[in-house]
Design a protein around this nucleic acid. Sequence first.
DNA 1: GGATGTGAAAGTCTTCACAGCG
DNA 2: CGCTGTGAAGACTTTCACATCC
Lengths: 213, 213
Amino acid sequence: MTAPRTVSRLTLYVRLLNDLLAEGAEFVHSHELARRARVTAAQVRRDLMVLGAPGSPKRGYKCRRLLDELSLFFNHETSKPVALFGVGDLGRALLSYFKMRHSDLEIVAAFDIDPLKNGRVIHGCRCYPLDKLESIVQERGISVAIIAVPASAAQLIVDRLMLAGIKGIVNFAPTPLHVGPAVFLENLDVAMSLEKAAYFASKGMPKKKDTSL
Amino acid sequence: MTAPRTVSRLTLYVRLLNDLLAEGAEFVHSHELARRARVTAAQVRRDLMVLGAPGSPKRGYKCRRLLDELSLFFNHETSKPVALFGVGDLGRALLSYFKMRHSDLEIVAAFDIDPLKNGRVIHGCRCYPLDKLESIVQERGISVAIIAVPASAAQLIVDRLMLAGIKGIVNFAPTPLHVGPAVFLENLDVAMSLEKAAYFASKGMPKKKDTSL
DNA sequence: GGATGTGAAAGTCTTCACAGCG
DNA sequence: CGCTGTGAAGACTTTCACATCC
């Protein structure tokens, strides 16, 4: 099983490698990738080990080949439908962001409690009332959801999502969610991050300069 | 130096303890706090060690006392001005979110390249053009900034912020930022989190059910 | 010579387990 | 007894360092 941190960085390498290709680079050394990703070269080489893609001491890694291996690793090609819950400012920001990105991930349905949003199409994505949750998750084969509703509404939605068989959740609500053991949960708590930044801004840095990623 | 993960959880305990007080609880056991935070009781006790607040085997920890120690730890009381860069959907979401929250952190200035936003007040926060960056950061004594601009604009702003003496940055732009060694950087990369969730949703979970936080 | 690939070491973070107290 | 406080162990993660190859 590949380590979570490594998986995160691999998604970053995908972006950087696409940049490199666009710049016309055919090969890249671990040092160059490391410079762009703001990590060490050793880290890059360790991460790339899971791909099994060869690199030559002379030329480095072939960008195209790495991207192919990464496509396999992430099972790109098959697009993954995502559901969004909460179409406030944050929800709209996410819709427009993923609209732009060409990616295997696509937000195919948005849900909001506000009846005024029912049926509207925002950034190309249709809004549904919450009672359509189960039917749409099932029909569209959705296994990943984004929670962008107020904290008070989050757990109820998550409970329904779990019954509907969801497998991964990205949570923006500032509240700890309870999920079953087979569900992957990623919390993006803005208040927590800001407080942390403020704390280390006033006290000194935590040893090494790294964070999150 | 307190560990980053511990600092994150301590901010969470602040919220949970306020909930508990609001519910009329005077004392709380590590197990109850752990249940609400979705961590283990041992983790809670280990985290609380940095506060030096006593807990009694009989009653647990006194909520009021813990909050007082946490206030000291985070240097609450003194409010910390924060600058926001980028007033798109995401920026507006952040403004309305921090407007609501009663917190020591307050977004006191927003910056956007769009001249139409110049001078407007959004969710109680005034928008400025980017060329006011240095003067306002200095005048308001801002040491923490939020980057919510497109990836292409992020590094330039960060470079100027570092010259202006910024100490902490929360970055939403999907690009690795280069910061000096004395600057704390927290990356909240939505695309990365979603890709990670999708990956672990299709393969199985990474050993333990935890993530982020 | 300089880069890759990788055991082994060094950190960092979480959990265990148990002494000690109320 | 069950809970707190904490050394020690265990689990991740990153870095070191070096054999190996072009």
